[in-house]
Design a protein around this nucleic acid. Structure first.
Lengths: 230, 230
DNA sequence: TCGTCGAGTCGAACACCGTTCGTTATGGAG
DNA sequence: CTCCATAACGAACGGTGTTCGACTCGACGA
């Protein structure tokens, strides 16, 4: 006959320590970001998802910023990098920009987080830098021109990803409401106060996002072209 | 002969409640931002600077985000807006972009904060929007072209302001160290791994910031030009 | 085999955050 | 003078990133 467990026995031993790893942490954090957005990206939430405490993460990542950088670099790894071809530099540049932005958009908030980070310096970030510079150089830009173009495209791409992501996520209703109020307000002013804003207001929506991005990249490439031909 | 105050006397009465106002809060917050940067921009710090508690701020601003928006709009008020002139649209556009960025740079962190905000909709933001659109339209762009150009320039300007600000503030040593490590790392790799990164690495510094910005704006304007002539 | 060491895991606690709730104070209107 | 609405305020809530110190575990050397 089995006796019931005596009360001084504390029950099942705590399960064996779960070994963590940097990859595991990054994976988990990216999963959270993808599913729940930037608000879910706290050390506690990540740790919780890994069935541990936030302090455990610090054995593998220096701090939250480093976690974000690692995540960003992982995200960049999803992008295919073209081999620079002088005959196709325009398309390749465009392709690369589109790829970067697409990858960022897949993870709401990553662009915003990385915007404030240090120079991206992970392996994939370096590859991206090299690939873009190679394309720009293949197109005939000087070293400094390529460097500045690289900087501008990177900045704009991230900013655009931030914008698109904010149009898309949970605050969409809020943004629509703000847009509506703005329209109302602007229209309520004396005629002729903001005629251009009134005219273009309806053009801005999540549906025109890609068009905006493409326009910007095409325009910039046209400008680089003019530079090369001068 | 004056007697010392007896211990049951509690000293000076608590000063009369200080009336706050939205302007006062915004002024104080901007002062903090200018002097100490984004880390100082908490409701508690602002309230402290006003000799009150954070709860008092909520009678005047809805939340921290609204405070940031109000601050941004104030900052935009520092910029002179040109009256669109078709003969000078290029210079005017440049001038406006420069003005916006200059204003943002004066307040470390404002660009980053506003990057994540809703559509800027304060009075000055609206004036800016109208002014830029008017210039773009004066240059001969269609409505949608002007709208997209406006969007791109706004995004890039903010992103650039974030970049410049981060090169400038307290984390400068950190960034220099990161750049140094990167250079070291990249050079340590087999020759030919990242030749372009190695070549352009030394070009990036706080000293070349304005050049980068000017290049980007000039290039974009050249692209718009090509569009108009087509 | 045993003991030591270094690295990883973990809980508690620190210092901070934005915001809400309920109370108090104040000024203006009747 | 009284009442009411609004602003100011303290306490507290629920959260954040991070550190500190204790504990665990596996590898290595004696």
């Amino acid at each position: 006959m089995e006796l019931p467990d005596p009360p001084w026995r504390t029950g099942a031993r705590k399960p064996v320590r779960q070994p963590l790893s940097r990859d595991k942490i990054v994976d988990t954090a990216l999963g959270l970001l993808e599913k729940e957005g930037i608000e879910a990206l706290s050390m506690r939430r990540v740790a919780q998802a890994l069935n541990t405490g936030p302090a455990s993460l610090y054995a593998h990542v220096r701090n939250r910023d480093e976690l974000c950088e690692l995540m960003f670099d992982r995200v960049l790894g999803d992008v295919e990098l073209p081999e620079a071809d002088p005959a196709r530099w325009r398309d390749q540049l465009k392709e690369l920009c589109f790829g970067q932005v697409k990858a960022m958009i897949a993870y709401p908030g990553i662009a915003a987080v990385v915007m404030n980070a240090m120079i991206p310096a992970g392996p994939n970030a370096l590859r991206h830098g090299e690939a873009m510079l190679a394309i720009l150089r293949a197109g005939g830009l000087s070293e400094s021109q390529a460097a500045w173009a690289f900087d501008a495209l990177g900045l704009y791409g991230k900013a655009y990803a931030v914008e698109v992501t904010s149009w898309r996520d949970g605050s969409q209703e809020e943004m629509a409401e703000r847009a509506r109020q703005m329209t109302e307000y602007v229209r309520s002013l004396p005629a002729g106060t903001f005629p251009n804003l009134i005219a273009i207001g309806p053009l801005f929506s999540a549906q025109t996002a890609h068009e905006r991005f493409e326009f910007a990249i095409d325009t910039f490439i046209a400008g680089l072209d003019a530079l090369i031909k001068a």
